[in-house]
């Protein structure tokens, strides 16, 4: 365990030193600021309320979870794998007395922590903006649902990251992985719209699964199915990615 902890710390340190994380934070804040400006504009221009204090974080989440969050997850993931493959720094990591499984897991854990951090940051700042600039519409129930929605979004994002990890292990070039991920992402989005009956097969649909936790009746069966789909595809992508990572020669 101590070995794994050291590897994880090492990965987090590497992640933290990258400019991408800073850019991700700045962009997330920009989304909140722009979103709030749009809402204020709509309010004074069209006489609509736009959003209340609790709806604002939900608006931010619905935008971010489909745009910049997957984008930066992809960038960070590609950096962590393809980047190290091409810089040959992977060799240095591998020479240390640690199994490849632990390195692989540590890398993924650090990515998940990045996603979690980004979500928490967005939650805190969008809530602040929501409460400062919007009419209060909060109730204990809706507040709890909002926080929960942010937290559960980590699951589909992790599956997405695992998918990109697999791609990063198949293709050598980071740019290729990036574009293939974006193409697959868009294709899944479109397919999910066209074949709404089969939309749960496309992993991008699950990005919106936080909506299920907003439903009054709490559709347990649907939540369980979506969770199992994500779990299944997560395990599948994780083991496929590890298989290739384990075989790889550096």
């Amino acid at each position: 365990m101590a070995v794994f902890q050291a590897a994880l710390l090492n990965e987090i340190e590497k992640l933290y030193r990258k400019k991408k994380v800073l850019v991700a934070i700045l962009l997330s804040l920009a989304v909140i600021v722009i979103g709030q400006l749009v809402i204020v504009g709509v309010r004074s221009g069209f006489g609509l309320r736009g959003t209340g204090s609790v709806e604002f974080p939900m608006l931010v989440l619905s935008v971010v979870v489909n745009t910049i969050l997957p984008l930066f997850t992809a960038l960070v993931t590609i950096d962590s794998f393809s980047g190290e493959f091409s810089q040959n720094s992977m060799r240095i990591t591998l020479t240390r007395p640690i199994s490849r499984f632990k390195i692989y897991t540590a890398k993924i854990t650090s990515i998940v922590l990045f996603i979690l951090g980004a979500l928490l940051l967005l939650l805190v700042f969008s809530m602040l903006a929501g409460f400062i600039f919007n009419a209060n519409s909060a109730s204990f129930d809706s507040l709890g649902r909002t926080v929960f929605s942010y937290l559960v979004s980590i699951l589909p994002m992790t599956v997405l990251a695992l998918g990109i990890v697999l791609l990063a292990n198949i293709f050598r070039s980071g740019i290729a992985v990036f574009f293939i991920s974006i193409l697959i992402f868009l294709a899944f989005k479109v397919l999910g719209l066209l074949f709404s009956q089969y939309s749960s097969l496309f992993l991008t649909t699950q990005l919106d699964w936080y909506n299920l936790f907003l439903v009054n009746s709490f559709p347990l069966a649907k939540i369980a199915r979506q969770f199992l789909i994500m779990l299944g595809s997560g395990i599948m992508l994780f083991s496929a990615g590890f298989y290739i990572f384990d075989k790889k020669e550096f």
Binding site: K222, L231, I235
Partner: peptide, 13 residues
């Protein structure tokens, strides 16, 4: 993982 994905996806559809 694959089986889990396939069965739940079918059930969901």
């Amino acid at each position: 993982g694959t089986l889990l994905l396939a069965t739940t996806a079918l059930a969901d559809i």
